[in-house]
Design a protein around this nucleic acid. Structure first.
Lengths: 343, 343
DNA sequence: AATAGTATTGCAAATGTTTTCATAAATTCG
DNA sequence: CGAATTTATGAAAACATTTGCAATACTATT
């Protein structure tokens, strides 16, 4: 009953208390089957009594896995990513891993810095959002031989293993929905596309789908807004008060779509009668607003969960096989779109 | 040019490449002023050339700080916490710390498990949300002498250092706003209060404020809903279709208030003419919906930022002084509340 | 030119584990 | 009952750093 509180409780203190060697204590943790049940009990009691907590750092140093996985996202504070992070976190937690989280605010240089930082902590793997990353980041990952994963995007030719959705398809589906409803006069609100391949893919696919039907978007109907409800609302108000008004609005994601919806309500426009709005994402909440938002559903939770599962498998496997998983998209039709009034 | 790629680059490899001793390399990182600028340059070149990345695990083992801070939240996937997490993360990042994030889904036993897990990683400190935690958790923190911090709640008598807001005050402010507008027939929608002291404090303060004015809430006007827009919407619809309908609805937070607003719109009730709604929180987005949500603003971002700053100070300080910081609340009046129609 | 001081570097011990190898004890088998 | 296994444990080396101490080289002072 000497140094119980001292916080200096290590494996040898436990060993001493249980009158065994440190090796045996270690084994009790790592290969319980190799130690006599009786001694095991003794040791566990000692652990209990001393309040011993294993030191992952020491294990890590020994070449064992650190038990941490790094996740680098553009931003935490977005329905989109919060959902993925949650699912990813829960998923890897189930396999005993802890989450080292970092965000870079859509700045690929900061992303590099974050990855580096995580590498210093010897994460067992690092997951990034999207497939577009700086040369330096790619080199770093390559050189350190750290297992890496791209989340959120899918591409059949991605260099990194990936779990995500095909954003081009998402864009196309959204465009086709509006086209099928007869809309030909379509407005676009998207975020900046540099350093954001998701947005870029969606946008280019939208343009493609539209022009395939002979529809082109006049400059004044194409607007840029960040993923912020209030800023998107502003942008939408500007767009909707131009001389000519589109009958359909295709938004880069649900946050923007929500902003657009509020803008319309604010301007006294009836949605969907005077204006159809479609988003991309189907975030938590998109189904709840009035009217429910029509959108292309990207299964964030499924992606996060799946990514976590597959990544821990990948990391713990002896001879890991790269993988690319494409999650299903679907156009969820709710209350913000209706056939174009044939004027 | 032998084992550049081998990933086996450690401090001694660097030392060899720079023709100095490992100690000197170590010093270049930790006490640059103690090493000759010329050697420093040599060493830096070697580091560069070999792509060496420091091993935090080895440092940690040496008693140095691990450079990680643990944050345990009820859930990541909520506007409320996402905002705090983001601010906290940015804040500690500025001081070179990394974030180990875990969530427990409002389960205090899981919270304990998460804290334990973080302790295994030898976090330099652990931040928890709220002031209500299990005995075991408290004991763990106490025993390990790990710096700990309570975020989000403020209490003048908290055992842990804390940075947050006074939730009782928040509840009172919300109640008083409705009372001042003349409402006497008030409905309440709150989440379950066990394991959630924020909600509990708010609710009890609301009741107090109301009864001080002689207002009591009939059972059928008091409803329970989790922090989910859709479920809150359901609960609100149920509540608002009872025989007697309140003129004012006070919601446990903005998510619930948003649900209530949608419910009202869904039922064809005019807000605020037929029904006033007030939330608590002022989450991102609350100002954007139509009409803008009246709410008691809890400065999540400020709390996260401040918490991060103060906590890193606390951790790095030689003789840390406990602190308790109470962040300002304010009632933000927007479009969902108006004077009670004096019937 | 000898002395004292200072600046720079290296040596070696220490940090908390895991694991290989060796040893001892217990069990099985012919 | 002795030999051959099997089971259970311990000793010691290894992991990648940091740091106190000692040694060396250099500078300034007299």
């Amino acid at each position: 009953m000497a140094n119980f509180q001292k916080g200096k409780v290590d494996i040898v203190a436990v060993a001493k208390a249980a009158k065994v060697s440190p090796s045996t204590v270690s084994r009790t943790f790592n290969h319980p089957d190799l130690v006599n049940p009786a001694t095991r009990k003794k040791i566990n009691r000692a652990i209990q009594r001393l309040g011993y907590i294993r030191n992952r750092a020491a294990q890590t140093m020994h070449g064992k896995r650190s038990g941490t996985i790094g996740l680098v996202v553009p931003t935490i504070n977005h329905a989109i990513f919060a959902e993925v992070i949650q699912a990813f976190s829960d998923s890897i937690d189930r396999d005993g891993f802890s989450l080292l989280l970092a965000s870079h605010g859509y700045d690929l240089d900061r992303e590099y810095a974050m990855v580096r930082k995580l590498l210093e902590h010897r994460v067992d793997g690092v997951a990034l959002v999207g497939l577009e990353h700086s040369e330096a980041t790619a080199r770093l990952i390559e050189q350190q031989k750290t297992p890496a994963l791209a989340i959120w995007n899918y591409a059949e030719d991605s260099t990194l293993p990936c779990v995500g959705a095909d954003n081009r398809l998402a864009g196309r589906l959204a465009a086709e929905h509006l086209l099928n409803l007869g809309h030909r006069n379509i407005g676009l609100i998207f975020p900046k596309t540099d350093g954001n391949d998701r947005a870029q893919h969606r946008l280019s696919a939208v343009h493609e789908a539209l022009s395939k039907m002979g529809v082109s978007v006049p400059d004044e109907h194409e607007s840029e807004a960040p993923y912020s409800v209030s800023q998107a609302k502003q942008a939408a108000i500007t767009l909707l008060t131009k001389r000519s008004r589109p009958t359909g609005l295709l938004c880069g994601n649900d946050v923007i779509a929500q902003g657009a919806l509020f803008a319309a309500q604010n301007l006294g426009l009836k949605v969907p009668d005077n204006l159809s709005i479609i988003g991309i994402g189907d975030f938590k909440g998109s189904s709840d607003i009035e009217p429910g938002l029509t959108t292309v559903r990207i299964p964030a939770e499924a992606i996060g969960k799946l990514a976590g599962e597959r990544f821990t498998d990948y990391i713990t496997s002896d001879e890991p096989a790269p993988f690319r998983i494409c999650c299903e998209l679907e156009c969820v039709v709710r209350g913000t779109t209706s056939p174009a009034s044939n004027s």
